[in-house]
């Protein structure tokens, strides 16, 4: 991997530009103003905006349920859900573990396979003409519908869940890898050729690092899909896990139990999502990730 994290001149570092010798710069060529400096003060507080928003939503929910006296069977108040979570904490923890393991392994296999297949299809025209159409058509089969088949093949244990989570998560990762690897300007490739770069060098120094933002975007989507995959798999056949409990509690008309499982699942999914996002910093300069996040936000 040619990219490194390093303490480069941080965009948010005040005085980074003032410290430079002014004589070296020509007139009319001042570097663009840095956006981050102004943002600096409010940034620490803004971090809590999402927490505050969540609390506000929960309060409205709680107030609405009490005001209109909604029965717990239809919509339990957050306080009831939290109480249920606390009462059955041993069960919820015990059931969170297998589900989390299924999601994580499924996602990990999907990431490795998706990236490798994306690379293979990008560089081998043989793979592109034989293997790739098959992969696409395989994506058109509703995986939820054939999930029972995987249970027959892989049993009711961990393997079938991991397989379904993998199958749902891997496609966006592969496609975004391919898109990233191909989005290179032809002049850039010419430049590398004129330096005498082999195709391996061009791949390591140019294509792969250039594709990283796309690969990570695909992995973020893949992570949310892995959660869906694991739960669907547990719906089909399982004797433990949050998906299993969701179905069980629903059968008992135990709405607080259902909502407890949903809340827990949401928290696990969000944590895993942010883990993927955070891992980006191991491969890309932070300033660049911020710039990329801004463009994504405006899309």
């Amino acid at each position: 991997m040619s990219t490194r994290t390093r303490n480069h001149a941080d965009a948010g570092h005040p005085g980074a530009i003032e410290g430079k010798p002014a004589g070296g710069l020509d007139k009319g060529e001042a570097p663009p103003m840095r956006r981050t400096r102004r943002r600096g003060a409010g940034r620490g507080f803004r971090r809590f905006y999402s927490v505050i928003a969540t609390i506000v939503v929960l309060l409205i929910w709680e107030g609405g349920v009490r005001l209109f006296a909604v029965p717990a069977l239809i919509l339990p108040a957050p306080s009831v859900v939290f109480a249920t979570l606390w009462e059955r904490r041993d069960l919820y923890i015990a059931f969170s573990v297998p589900t989390t393991i299924e999601i994580v392994i499924g996602f990990f296999v999907a990431a490795v396979a998706g990236i490798l297949l994306g690379i293979l299809v990008s560089f081998s025209s043989f793979a592109r003409s034989t293997f790739y159409p098959m992969l696409i058509s395989s994506q058109l089969i509703p995986k939820v519908a054939i999930a029972p088949v995987f249970v027959i093949w892989f049993g009711t244990g961990l393997e079938s869940k991991v397989f379904i989570a993998f199958l749902i998560a891997f496609f966006p990762i592969m496609i975004s890898t391919m898109v990233g690897l191909q989005a290179i300007e032809t002049d850039m490739v010419k430049l590398f050729k004129s330096m005498g770069a082999s195709s391996t060098t061009t791949f390591i120094k140019l294509r792969l690092p250039a594709a990283l933002p796309n690969i990570f975007a695909g992995m973020k989507i893949g992570m949310t899909l892995a959660v869906v995959g694991a739960i669907v798999a547990e719906f089909v056949a399982a004797d433990r896990g949050l998906g299993y409990y969701l179905l069980y509690a629903n059968g008992q008309l135990d709405s607080p139990g259902v909502f407890g499982a949903i809340m827990l699942l949401t928290v696990i999914g969000v944590i895993l999502y942010y883990l993927v996002e955070w891992s980006q910093h191991l491969f890309m300069p932070s300033a660049l990730i911020r710039a990329a996040d801004l463009t994504q936000a405006t899309m």
């Binding site: 001149a9 430079k20 070296g24 710069l25 570097p31 300033a287």
Partner: peptide, 21 residues
């Protein structure tokens, strides 16, 4: 880099520089 008037910018990222730089 010093010859083209860019000493001091070694550790900057490209998007922090103007087109001419």
């Amino acid at each position: 880099l010093a010859l083209v008037g860019l000493s001091g910018f070694e550790q900057f990222l490209p998007h922090e520089l103007s087109g001419g730089m």
